[in-house]
Design a protein around this nucleic acid. Structure first.
Lengths: 95, 95
DNA sequence: GCGCAATGTCGCCGTACGACGACATTGCAT
DNA sequence: ATGCAATGTCGTCGTACGGCGACATTGCGC
């Protein structure tokens, strides 16, 4: 999933969290932040400490990668979140 | 390039910047941050505003992506930075 | 040796962060 | 309707951020 704004990060965290059945309180606990703060992240608040964001990403089971922007990118069809998290929500999703 | 800490982000920005022949002042100008701040980012300061970080990433020609952590990841051999930026520093790298 | 550009550092100021505790609201099961 | 868990919001406090301007240092060319 491409990340351009904090809203994207918030959405990713929220998806990952709910797909794992974690509450805000639990994820915040694991990541070492306040629940209050986690709410702000999921809402896309722009002025958050970047290291805390990275901590939460990790605690939520999300990896982050960077690299050169492709010179020109049209519409890249990406997998849905349900697909991305299929290995967490239910191993056997066929049938 | 995997991003785990702010140091990783700082390194990525610095690489991208120098590979494009940009000065700190110029990149800071384009991203709308102070040069002072950009120095802190490249040094891996952990308490930076995440949205500003994203702005600089974009201004430096870096894309950011997130997704579920692979269940188990051994040592993934990645391309070197020189390879990643070959299309910026020199189009023709063959021969 | 000299000048220039780039980088890294410092002190100051206005501002918002991040944690905490309490509360209101929402969603769901019974 | 009731009870409970989860979520979102508010006010307060201590603290560091982010921008600014100036300076020291470094690296390079001549």
């Amino acid at each position: 999933m491409q990340v351009h704004t904090v809203r994207d990060l918030g959405a990713a965290v929220r998806e990952a969290r709910s797909h794992q059945g974690l509450t805000q309180a639990e994820l915040a606990r694991r990541a070492g932040v306040s629940r209050d703060w986690l709410v702000r992240l999921e809402q896309g608040h722009p002025r958050l400490e970047v290291q805390l964001v990275l901590d939460v990403l990790a605690a939520a089971g999300l990896a982050l990668a960077t690299g050169p922007q492709p010179p020109e990118t049209a519409d890249q069809t990406e997998a849905t979140w349900d697909e991305l998290f299929s290995h967490l929500t239910g191993e056997s999703d066929n049938g």
